[in-house]
């Protein structure tokens, strides 16, 4: 076991090792401001932002809730890539002692690191991301067979936490602001495969065409960056096939 002196030395060395953190301050227009943050073991990017807000500059705005990768609120652009900050270790992303933290791209900035997610979630609604069933609370449970083809097809896709990393990373969203984006389309794909849902054709029509799944160029940035390791590209490809089949049958 390390002596008290060694423990103190380690603590001092750790404290003296600092990160140079460039943080976006402002709204659509603004500037990066640099903060010095002590580097600690197992430190996450969210820890860094929290330290700045609590110890250096209480006017810094950012968004978080669960801190454990469940809620999807804390996504930001870290060194140019969208990431969930609560599960991103500084050691993995720091370039030397430098980190740059900005709000999510492809969304308006409310203030500092807080992006306006309205457009992102409005597109879930446009893609008919709501479930429409026939049963009431009085009815029996619906039985969805875990081994069925449709349930297997969305086994990963249903785990989306709505963090917006895919939307922020998507080139097509940047080029075509009407594009629904990977998360909304992924959500639609889960419902298209839900045997209880009754709005299949309306949903396929909602996700079709120039602003829908057919706009995807399969760059796979969404899949590359998804913190949950989901494959929205596969969901979108599934929608393309389902919509094309419906169009050829004259259902759209």
């Amino acid at each position: 076991m390390a002596s008290l002196k060694e423990q103190v030395d380690t603590a001092i060395r750790s404290y003296l090792s600092t990160l140079q953190v460039r943080v976006w301050r402002g709204r659509e227009s603004g500037e990066f401001r640099t903060y010095e943050v002590p580097r600690l073991e197992s430190q996450t990017v969210l820890d860094v932002v929290t330290y700045i807000q609590r110890s250096l500059d209480p006017t810094l705005s950012y968004r978080f809730a669960c801190r454990v990768g469940v809620c999807g609120s804390c996504a930001m652009t870290v060194n140019g890539k969208a990431r969930w900050t609560c599960r991103t270790h500084v050691a993995r992303v720091a370039e030397g002692d430098q980190i740059e933290i900005a709000p999510l791209a492809n969304l308006p900035v409310i203030k500092d690191l807080v992006a306006d997610m309205s457009r992102f979630f409005d597109k879930w609604a446009q893609a008919k991301g709501q479930f429409h069933g026939t049963r009431t609370r009085a009815g029996d449970f619906a039985r969805v067979l875990p081994e069925s083809r449709q349930r297997q097809a969305v086994d990963a896709a249903i785990e989306c936490i709505g963090c917006g990393v895919c939307y922020s990373s998507c080139d097509v969203v940047a080029w075509n602001p009407d594009y629904l984006g990977p998360a909304a389309l992924n959500r639609a794909w889960t419902l298209v495969n839900d045997v209880r849902d009754t709005a299949r054709v309306a949903r396929l029509a909602a996700v079709a065409g120039d602003a829908g799944c057919h706009a995807c160029h399969t760059h796979m940035s969404c899949t590359e960056r998804c913190p949950k390791n989901l494959v929205p590209t596969a969901s979108i490809a599934g929608l393309k096939r389902a919509v094309a089949a419906a169009a050829l049958k004259g259902e759209l």
């Binding site: 079709a208 120039d210 094309a244 169009a247 759209l252």
Partner: peptide, 12 residues
């Protein structure tokens, strides 16, 4: 252009 035509263009 309606959605069905857009989809048929993609298919074509």
């Amino acid at each position: 252009m309606n959605t069905r035509t857009q989809v048929l263009l993609w298919t074509a």
